[in-house]
Structures are given as structure tokens and as C-alpha cells.
Computed example of a mutant assay.
Amino acid sequence: MNLRTPVELPAGLFRMKHADHLMLLGSCFAAEMGERLLNIKFRCNVNPYGVIYNPLSISVALREIEAGKSYGTEELFLFRELWHSPMHHGEFSSSDKEKVLENINTRLREAHAAFSQLDYLLLTFGTAWVYESKESGRVVSNCHKQPEAKFTRRKLSVDEIVFDYRNLLSDVLLRNPKLKVLFTVSPIRHVRDGLHANNLSKATLLLAVEQLQTLFPEHAFYFPAYELLLDELRDYRFYADDMAHPSKLAVDYVWERFVHSCISADALRIMEESENIRKMLSHKPFYPASEEYKRFLGQIVLKIDQLNGKYPYLDFQKEREICRIRLKA
């Protein structure tokens, strides 16, 4: 008896390698996937603006990254004793205006430097509902809990999203014709919008992505993270306590399907070796100062050296520093 509906993954998805350069932007699902890719030593720039939910704000961010924009004090506002950017997540907010600008512009410089080298751009759309500032007329990425009266709330249309991204991708691909773009729609349900409004929003995003795939058949791809949770797992035991976010088990499942669909066989072997190093470092010795444990740490360093000898672009700086500190202890 078959008690689930398997989701068939699209044929012809690309296979990423550790030598590739990646950038991820979008909802907290993009942040989760990006963190996991970093942990397995992929070269990623993840959410340089923090979490962004709507497609228009993601496209603005990409244009600013490509242009090498630098933010100034006039683009921040003070609310509840904190300085905020309407384009950035609250993780950038602070009571220190200069600190906000430093953090924003540092991340922007890093993203701009990486942008021209990108092999893959992974974009996760969270919602088609947007908030427009009545003062500026612009869609904001984050309201920062300001009064709703300051904004006009509306749902983007399919045509509006497609028009914006057709122009954006045409421009980006002209400068970087090798770039592949992987779209996903976040499986996180925006319950605050109401379930019907959430479903309309997700449908809008899915239809827009489908049209973009038709317009850019060699460059635009779709990974069905949304369908894997909603159709294949399809049970509240795969949701967190808020009944909106996927549980860890669900994210693990989607991640597993993503890895085996989009990552090359050689990269899978590197992942396994990197995971072995991580597990060795997580080992808690009974006697940290013993010669036996120092020999064990030496074996870890040797494994890192061997892996870096074959793949010099892998970043094991953090692991090397941990070994150095423990060896000196």
C-alpha cells in the first residue's frame, strides 16, 4: 500500500561542484539551504541583505549588488531607538547608525565582488504579498514593525513578477552568460495572511517561475521544495510547533532530495570527507591535554591538508583554527 504521493524531480537539473561560486537570496528557507551548503564547504554568499520574502525586493537587491551600491545615512530611518534599512532584515538594525552602515556595506562589497564570478544563483520566493511605503512609493523588504498605516499592502501579479525578472535576467546574462538560476518557492506558510491568501500567493509565485523557465529555458530551473513538503510529506508532523515552518525532519528530507538532484558525484565524496572531519572535531576527549588527543588532532590536520591538496578552493580555516587552539591548550 502506497501511503504518500512521490514528487518527481525535474529532469535535467544542473549538478553543482565545490569549485563553483554560488549566491542565495530569499526567504529563511534560502538561509537554511545556504547554511547547509556552507557547512559542506561550498563557496556561497548567503542572503547579503538578510532574509527577503518577496520577488521585487530580491530583484532590487540583485540590481544593487551588481551595481556595487553603497548605502548612506539618508537611506536609514530611526524607529523605536534603532536604525533600520527598509531593504534589509532586522539583523542589520542597531542603535548605532554607523554600525548599521558598516555591516550593510561590508556585506554589499563582498556580494558585489562575488557577483561577476557566479556560476549559480539560487532564489527562494516566499510570498507575492508586498508592502509599499506610502511615503516613497517603493516596495520594502521589511516593515520593521512600523504602523500598518504607513504602508499599502497588495499582491503582485504574475505579469509584474515576470516583467521585472525578464529585464533583470536579460541584463545579468548579458554580462555572465554561463549563469544558471535555480528558483524555489518557500514551503513556509504565511498564515498571518490567511490560508486562502497564502495559497493565492504561492500560486502566483509558481506561475511566474514557470513563465521565466519558458523565457530562459537554458538558464532558469525550478526545484520543487514547496511540493515536497505540501504534497509528498503532507502531514502536520513535518511542521514545527507554529504549524507554518517545516520541522527539522522535513528540512532534512528536502535537503536530501536537493543534494541528490543538484550536486555532482565528486562533490558528494567531498561532502562525506568534510563531514568526517566535522565529526572528528566534535569528539569530546576525556583528557584534552593528553598526547593521545594531540595525535588525534594531528590526524585531523593531516586529513585537512590532504583534502586541500586535492581541492585548494575548500575553506577549512575555521577547522584549522580549532585544531591550533586545542593543540596549544
Rank of each mutant, 00 (worst) to 15 (best):
R324A: 15
Q306A: 13
S94I: 02
E110S: 11
H190Y: 02
G137N: 02
E74V: 02
L38D: 13
N39F: 06
D315A: 10
R324E: 13
G298C: 03
E148A: 10
I322N: 02
H245Q: 07
R109P: 00
P177A: 01
L281E: 04
L207N: 14
E98Y: 03
H196W: 09
L281M: 00
G26D: 11
N276P: 00
L168P: 00
E218T: 13
E32W: 02
T127K: 05
P288L: 04
A30D: 11
A267W: 04
I52D: 02
L25M: 15
S186R: 02
R154P: 11
L82A: 09
A19R: 15
K284G: 05
F151T: 08
V140T: 08
K145C: 02
H219V: 01
K248I: 12
N199D: 14
R192G: 01
M87I: 00
H144D: 08
G26S: 12
V254E: 05
S116W: 09
A225D: 01
M23K: 06
D242K: 01
K178P: 05
C28D: 09
N276K: 15
L314F: 11
L233Q: 04
A329Q: 14
K284N: 03
N167Q: 14
T127P: 11
K294S: 07
E35A: 14
E292K: 10
L13I: 13
P6R: 10
I270T: 10
L228Y: 09
K248W: 08
E256S: 15
L233S: 06
T204S: 05
V254Y: 07
H112Y: 13
I300W: 05
E75N: 09
E98H: 08
V185H: 01
S247M: 07
A197P: 08
R278Q: 12
A197R: 03
Y226L: 06
M243Q: 15
C262N: 06
K134L: 13
Y236M: 09
S157Y: 00
L156E: 08
L327M: 15
E35G: 15
K202S: 04
S157N: 05
A31H: 01
L123P: 00
F92T: 01
Y311G: 09
N2W: 10
S136W: 03
G137I: 04
G26F: 06
N176Y: 04
L3F: 14
W129G: 07
K284R: 14
C28E: 06
S136H: 05
I300S: 00
Y287C: 02
V191D: 10
W83L: 05
A329D: 13
A225H: 07
L22P: 14
F258S: 13
K318V: 13
H88E: 04
S85G: 08
K150P: 00
H196G: 01
V139N: 04
I304L: 03
I300K: 06
I322Y: 02
R15I: 06
D193H: 01
C262H: 07
N103P: 00
A111K: 06
H190L: 02
L200N: 11
C323H: 09
V254N: 04
L78H: 12
G137R: 09
I188T: 14
V7Y: 05
P10G: 09
E110Q: 12
E81A: 11
P10C: 11
H18E: 11
L230P: 00
E321Q: 15
S170L: 03
L25A: 13
V172D: 09
P187D: 03
V181E: 05
H88L: 03
D171S: 13
S93R: 04
H144F: 08
F151Y: 14
E272I: 06
R234M: 04
